[in-house]
Simulated assay, not measured.
Amino acid sequence: MLRIFEPGEELEMFQWGQAGQEVATARWWTSWDIDAPHSIPGQMVEVLAVLEGKLPPADA
């Protein structure tokens, strides 16, 4: 599904990674839903606030 994002539009976005590894910040995702996510290049995103942040345990 094509989705056009407009400058100044605010979205709740996600990043995730594997335990013990640094989270890659090159892409942000618009949904956890495997059927409907869109990815945005990291250089096009301005983080306004971190709503929830947690690092996975290194021994998981």
Rank of each mutant, 00 (worst) to 15 (best):
G53T: 08
T30W: 03
E52N: 12
E46M: 08
E6K: 11
E52V: 09
A19C: 11
S31D: 03
E9M: 06
A19S: 09
M44I: 11
S39A: 09
M13L: 06
W29E: 10
K54V: 11
H38A: 08
M1H: 15
L2V: 15
H38T: 10
L11D: 04
A26S: 15
M1N: 15
F14G: 04
A49R: 11
E22D: 12
S39D: 12
F14R: 05
Q15H: 03
V45T: 02
D59Q: 08
I4S: 13
P37N: 14
L51H: 07
E52K: 11
T30R: 03
T30N: 02
E46T: 07
L55N: 15
A24D: 13
G17E: 01
G53W: 07
G42T: 01
G42K: 00
V47A: 00
S31Q: 02
D33M: 05
W16K: 12
A26M: 15
P7V: 00
M1G: 14
A24L: 13
D35L: 14
L51G: 06
F5G: 05
E10H: 09
E6T: 10
L48G: 04
F5P: 03
A60R: 11
A49G: 08
D33R: 04
S39G: 10
G53H: 09
P7H: 02
P37H: 15
A26G: 14
G8C: 01
M44Q: 14
W32N: 14
W16T: 08
G8W: 00
A24F: 15
G20C: 01
I40Q: 00
G17L: 01
W32I: 14
L51P: 05
W29S: 13
Q15W: 03
A19V: 06
I40A: 00
P57R: 06
K54P: 10
E6P: 09
L48E: 04
K54M: 10
W29L: 12
I40E: 01
I4K: 08
A26I: 15
P7D: 01
S31F: 01
P57A: 06
G8E: 02
R3L: 11
D35H: 15
W16Y: 09
A26P: 13
I4N: 10
